[in-house]
Design a protein around this nucleic acid. Structure first.
Lengths: 252, 252
DNA sequence: CGCGATTTGTGCACGCCTTCACAAGCGCCT
DNA sequence: AGGCGCTTGTGAAGGCGTGCACAAATCGCG
């Protein structure tokens, strides 16, 4: 929902390949393909079929082919996709070849964990700065980084060319932090605080609300329970739209 | 706070089946509505219009009305929705009135933070058990809970009626943990480990991959950068910027 | 050199979701 | 009592995404 509509821009320069405007749903799956491809690359595979990659990524093979076709023709009929070529292409599209600098605001329980999350570093991101407003936390060393006061954000963001900010504060201060990030030139925000952020239209926001995920699961629990508890009839006809993903996951 | 006039309380309804099968997209938004409603209730509002609630939840008002209409008719034309009634109804639908027990597997960096995440407790969930396989972690006290060995999962899950499990382990062990959870009778899994899980069709899985969120933001950064690099000042002047959408949401 | 096996890329149909636009319903004011 | 303004609930239209099914393309082999 934090998505915005982007008009296709015909403006084609010469050097760099034009930027295909991919469906939002496709973009959201590319990282998953990328992870699966890296895994395949480690096992020594040089090529992979759409069927194989789709299984590793947990999606339908037709969907995967359509997704990849939006990037251009990087497969060979009768053979499959060149793993390393596809990795490079997806990483380019996602802008991961720039090893993006990320800052994190709010070094509480969750922020602390995020600051040390290995998954960020291993997938193209560098957490280069931590911020908080609590005097007791400012100055603290976390994972080799010193926690700075939020007031220093603008200066440091400029020095480090930070374009992505992560908000891990309590809900009450999230909007204030978002404003500060925007003022500092940050144009992409990952928000872990519950609530709606108001930002200029040129800033992208993605929200992760951990409790919401549990609540959605809770709904399904409730639904399942009410079905099995039904006295007459349609109890057995459960699971109308389940995920049919029953295939090999990443083994090991 | 006093909502008793509605004879068909949750649980049993005459006109509408006790459990309407809601569109998946609607379900995903209900928690957001619920949060906004709680916020409104704290400010003392007794009723709210679809316009007002939609703004607070960051969605289109027509969408909100359609979503709520799926639950039944809980609004009054010309007036709006009764806040406390709607809260009760959504909480019932989401199954939050049962204060669900949740267990968490993997007490690493992230798991540690999740174990102490206040947002869970305040929104209808109790983290009742922590598990790990690392002998150095088993026995540790976190947030008033003792970390148990994964081998004890089946027994404790039964004792505590745990239906929801959270996986916060490294990717390599996620599938093993998922299998253990399923064996212990858990039917809903929230997975923070990258990768695809394979589970029986009666088990629901939701995945949260923090790195993927950043990668999606990175894509938009890349796209924005390639646009501003375009020749011609149209980008700033003619401003083909997105639809105004509904900024200015959370009325401060 | 041609043939068959294999796999990609895609046209098409279908279903879900979103959005608009408006009639129906409700309360308040005169 | 009646009218008026406000708000919900919903029919209809359009857009987006998914999955099927197949033609086109490529490789290996005889």
């Amino acid at each position: 929902m934090s998505q915005q509509r982007h008009g296709s821009t015909p403006g084609e320069a010469g050097g760099v390949p034009a930027f295909p405007d991919l469906p939002e749903a496709t973009i959201a799956r590319l990282p998953e393909y990328l992870r699966a491809l890296h895994h395949l690359a480690e096992t020594g595979a040089e090529t992979v079929s759409s069927e194989g990659l789709a299984a590793a990524a947990g999606v339908n093979s037709a969907k995967l082919r359509k997704d990849l076709s939006h990037l251009g023709s990087y497969g060979t009929r009768g053979v499959g996709y060149d793993v390393s070529l596809l990795v490079a292409q997806i990483e380019y599209i996602l802008g991961l070849d720039e090893n993006r600098a990320v800052c994190l605001v709010g070094v509480g329980n969750l922020g602390h964990a995020l600051a040390g999350y290995a998954g960020f570093a291993s997938r193209g991101f560098r957490v280069v700065a931590l911020f908080d407003t609590d005097p007791k936390k400012v100055g603290e060393q976390i994972n080799g980084l010193t926690v700075r006061h939020l007031d220093d954000l603008e200066r440091i963001a400029a020095e480090e060319s930070i374009a992505i900010g992560v908000i891990a504060t309590p809900p009450g201060t999230a909007q204030t932090v978002a404003d500060a990030l925007v003022a500092a030139g940050v144009t992409s925000i990952l928000n872990f605080a519950p609530g709606v952020l108001s930002v200029p239209s040129n800033v992208d926001v993605r929200k992760v609300d951990l409790a919401i995920e549990l609540q959605i699961l809770s709904f399904h629990e409730h639904r399942k329970a009410s079905l099995t508890a039904l006295p007459g009839g349609r109890a057995a006809a459960a699971s109308p739209d389940k995920q049919p993903e029953d295939q090999e996951a990443v083994g090991s």
